[in-house]
Design a protein around this nucleic acid. Structure first.
Lengths: 188, 188
DNA sequence: ACCTGAACACCGTTCAAGT
DNA sequence: ACCTGAACACCGTTCAAGT
């Protein structure tokens, strides 16, 4: 006796499952029609479950956001605040690059309270802010750097990596270049 | 006795003129249909003159590219290589942000030899490389920084400014943050 | 030669009709 | 309640028909 609620749940799950594949293939601007088609679901059904593209992206990102916030919490407990921040920034930059177009969506949505994706981005920005504050308290990072600036810069690293797929260690290198500036060198 | 050639020329000019307005309004992803409509020209005429979106963008950017390369030439003659590079990076970052979406188009097209926009980007990348080399020769910038890395980073500054229109001095600030890392501080 | 706009194959989004 | 897919208003791109 599978009720309508069960079918609705299964539909939702299938949409999400298919969306992971299609968005991985086509990026965040993937065709919603295509997702509905490949999930063998009416287009209206997709819209019922996910009233906007950002709502779908938010669901796709939830796992990763949860994982990243957990990582951030663990890193906050680290003794070496500078190393913790560096590790975090690198992991976040990889996470922000999960899908083509994602860095743009994340940065754009940060300023847009109304977007469902905003709920996914905020904890990441907040985690960045906490780790930054700790590193600043340890005098490891210039004190005038704001969390929004750092967040934008590390998101941009993901954006560059996406636009320039020639090398894949771009992220480490670019982040190191930026940090060498942002990190206050020990007195010498 | 205005011949067909004259009309073709006038059509082309009107398309470019209208495209400047529409692309300024809607960004590099502006509707080509809309441009043709507002230029009071058949859609096929637009395609005849500009077989691809990048071909149109290249025409829109030509003036600015010429102006920027002239600036770069002048700056190369400056004594203070570090100051010249900084000035260049800031001016380029503003130029790259002429239209919404342009930083993305520019960085993407750098690796795509086939794009008509490539011809517009290459002189800018080359100018960046020359000014970088001069600054490196003066020991003002870390020697292991490549022109492509610097080009990507400064383009990313334009990208961030576009995604985060809250502040408008973003460019100066972000560039300073990055340079403070890239610029080797005087021995102290 | 050059121009036009219909034609084709796609979108995102809404919503009346079905179960 | 939930699902479907036609309907609407858009795209980019091509190309037969016109001058």
């Amino acid at each position: 006796m599978t009720g309508a609620r069960d079918e609705a749940r299964r539909n939702r799950e299938r949409i999400v499952e298919v969306a992971r594949v299609v968005v991985r293939e086509q990026g965040t601007q993937a065709s919603l029609r295509d997702i509905a088609r490949r999930a063998e679901v009416g287009l209206g059904t997709l819209y019922r479950h996910f009233p906007s593209r950002d709502a779908l992206l938010e669901t796709l990102m939830r796992r990763r956001v949860d994982h990243l916030t957990a990582r951030a919490a663990a890193l906050t407990a680290e003794k070496d605040a500078a190393a913790a921040l560096t590790t975090w920034l690198l992991e976040f930059s990889y996470g922000a690059g999960t899908y083509r177009g994602l860095p743009e969506s994340l940065l754009a949505t940060l300023a847009d309270q109304t977007s469902p994706l905003h709920a996914a981005v905020e904890p990441l920005r907040d985690a960045t802010a906490r780790l930054l504050a700790a590193a600043q308290a340890a005098n490891a990072i210039r004190a005038d750097l704001t969390a929004d600036e750092l967040f934008a810069l590390v998101t941009a690293v993901g954006w560059i990596a996406e636009q320039t797929p020639t090398l894949d260690n771009h992220r480490e290198r670019l982040l190191a270049l930026i940090l060498d500036g942002l990190t206050r060198p020990p007195r010498r």
